[in-house]
Design a protein around this nucleic acid. Structure first.
Length: 270
DNA sequence: AGATCGGCCTGGACGC
DNA sequence: TGCGTCCAGGCCGATC
């Protein structure tokens, strides 16, 4: 479940190893539906950045940065350089050969995606093309966030998972932020005060998780093979049956938007 | 047009 | 021990 903090931690380790390197070959498992990644061959990576849960590598040839390699970790995706890598691992789904080393993409459940597109052309990637603002950036504003939530009557958790009001929040940090903001995940109307609370809560939980290099529940690992350190700080996600640290009621698990959702029936209100 | 739901994919946990 | 069933969930496409 790599979400924004996990992807940010991966990007911070990939960037210094990839920027300036030329991609001289690619291999991928034909059973993993990776689109056009052979179009990365012969191009130099000029930047690696994150948007939501996506990683975008800008590709240049002949002085023109005209293509992008889009990488998504899905549920179980991870990158590793060959010297720390998975020798003979059957779950390596793709390999990028750079001019100074080899990087493997391992993905047990094949939810990850690698795609090359014309630079900035995200039309074929529905979620990326409609992605909301970066939650830790200056253009994530509380008033606009409230307006975005007010435009829909879907449960607030479904809206967060849609990536449209804000980018990068997945199941773990949605539950954490809604707990912190004291909002029932099923709420279909969120007033201005509670929208501001949720705006603050999202920024707070994501910032803290980045400081701890993400949450490792099971699969997530960084490029250096280490786990994130945020799992022991989770208050809601995965804490069903535990007493709420704020009000003492027992945390309950339900299904919202088709996803397991843990919340406090005592202090999270519709 | 927006909301909702099933499918993808696999390993692991669990029940009998 | 072994088999079957369910669960995890980001995203996408079909359907309501």
């Amino acid at each position: 479940m790599p979400e924004l903090p996990e992807v940010e931690s991966v990007v911070r380790q990939l960037r210094p190893r990839m920027v300036g390197r030329c991609i001289i070959d690619v291999w991928w498992d034909p059973q993993s539906r990776f689109d056009r990644i052979d179009q990365a061959i012969g191009r130099t990576i000029t930047d690696v950045r994150r948007r939501g849960k996506y990683m975008l590598a800008l590709l240049e040839a002949g002085g023109l940065s005209d293509r992008e390699l889009i990488m998504h970790l899905g549920m179980t995706g991870a990158f590793r350089f060959r010297e720390l890598g998975w020798q003979g691992d059957p779950y390596v789904r793709a390999t990028l050969t750079l001019d100074d080393g080899i990087v493997d993409f391992r993905d047990v459940r094949r939810f990850g995606r690698l795609t090359v597109v014309p630079a900035g052309d995200y039309r074929g990637i529905a979620t990326l093309s409609q992605l909301g603002p970066e939650p830790l950036g200056l253009d994530f504003r509380a008033d606009q966030f409230h307006a975005a939530l007010a435009r829909s009557r879907a449960p607030v958790k479904a809206q967060l998972l849609s990536q449209r009001p804000v980018a990068g929040v997945g199941n773990i940090y949605a539950d954490e932020a809604l707990w912190l903001a004291r909002i029932d995940p099923r709420a279909r109307r969120v007033g201005p005060q509670r929208a501001v609370r949720l705006w603050e809560a999202i920024r707070s939980v994501l910032h803290a998780a980045i400081e701890r290099e993400g949450t490792t529940f099971r699969d997530y690992q960084m490029v250096n093979g280490e786990s994130g350190r945020n799992a022991t700080f989770l208050v809601a996600y995965g804490q069903r049956g535990r007493p709420c640290p704020r009000c003492g009621a027992l945390l309950r698990k339900i299904v919202v938007a088709g996803r397991g959702t843990t919340y406090c029936p005592g202090c999270q209100r519709i």
